[in-house]
């Protein structure tokens, strides 16, 4: 960024890699939506929280579900309510406006100050969903035919979109976005991340735990590799249980916090036994 003091630099509890910070800043400057992909547990959703906190902006979260329609994010015209009110004639129904409720995207546009809009897990919705939002995200405006009104963004919101790649996003949509794939953090980065959460963790415990953690991740054929959030849970369990670092190297306590799947646990135990206890995998 040209102005070093402004712009996003990560926040107290979220460690962003430097390229990611730069890209967040470019996306903000150009007003383009930022699509974040990556393994589960690499902090995609947290990024938006962190941006909102660091830049002191309001965060609007639009959680996408399999039934979410693009129009839900713009506005909902509650026709059933109006119909119901019309039946009993005790309310004035001539003003349609009271039956039009803005969705998350609409709220972000109407906001008096710039907000951060998080569209979380966009891939959960139908394949066509992102395409339906193309124009709205491009122009940052939409039309409400019932009122014949144009909702135009007062300030272009900072749009962060996360995807778990359950479905691929359409090309036309991606063309208009900036894309970043968050890699799984390496051990040095992970150490920093853990320290943010547990500042007074013993160094030796942390080192042993990380060694184990990356080793488990390398076991072939796991259905669900443990990710950052599992590691944090595990370390918390280790700290609360007062497990000594030496014990981690000889056995793995609280394995259940790392591997959440019966088959994975079974596979893991078999493998470790086959290698003669919890020894490191011989790779050479």
């Amino acid at each position: 960024m040209t102005d070093k003091n402004k712009g996003y630099k990560g926040s107290d509890y979220y460690i962003a890699s430097k390229p990611l910070m730069e890209i967040v800043n470019v996306a903000i400057a150009l007003g383009k939506p930022l699509v974040i992909k990556g393994e589960p547990g690499t902090g995609k959703t947290l990024l938006a929280h962190s941006i909102a906190e660091a830049l002191d902006k309001k965060l609007i979260i639009w959680n996408i579900k399999s039934t979410t329609k693009a129009k839900d994010g713009l506005y909902v015209y509650d026709t059933v309510q109006r119909l119901n009110d019309a039946r009993f004639k005790d309310k004035d129904i001539s003003d349609i406006r009271q039956y039009i409720k803005l969705g998350k995207l609409g709220q972000a546009f109407k906001s008096d100050e710039q907000v951060v809009l998080l569209i979380d897990e966009i891939d959960k919705a139908d394949v066509e969903f992102p395409n339906d939002l193309l124009n709205e995200l491009d122009e940052m405006s939409f039309h409400i035919p019932e009122l014949d009104e144009e909702v135009v963004a007062k300030h272009r919101p900072i749009v962060v979109i996360t995807s778990n790649s359950e479905k691929e996003l359409p090309d036309a949509f991606l063309r208009r976005c900036i894309f970043y794939y968050i890699e799984f953090p390496d051990d040095e980065m992970m150490e920093r991340i853990v320290k943010v959460h547990y500042p007074d963790i013993e160094n030796k415990l942390l080192r042993e735990a990380l060694k184990r953690f990356y080793w488990i991740r390398e076991v072939d054929g796991l259905r669900k590799k443990p990710s950052t959030s599992e590691l944090l849970d595990w370390i918390k369990a280790l700290m609360l249980g007062g497990i000594s670092p030496d014990k981690i190297s000889s056995e793995i306590p609280f394995l259940g916090t790392l591997l959440k799947n019966e088959q994975d646990t079974g596979r893991f135990v078999r493998l470790s036994n086959a290698q003669g206890g919890f020894g490191f995998k011989k790779r050479f």
């Binding site: 730069e22 890209i23 470019v26 699509v35 900036i178 894309f179 970043y180 794939y181």
Partner: peptide, 18 residues
């Protein structure tokens, strides 16, 4: 460095093409 990372964010839209 900037060119590499920012260029990638603009031009490549899937980790498959990284």
């Amino acid at each position: 460095n900037h060119l590499y990372y920012i260029g990638r964010a603009f031009l490549v839209k899937s980790e498959a093409y990284y």
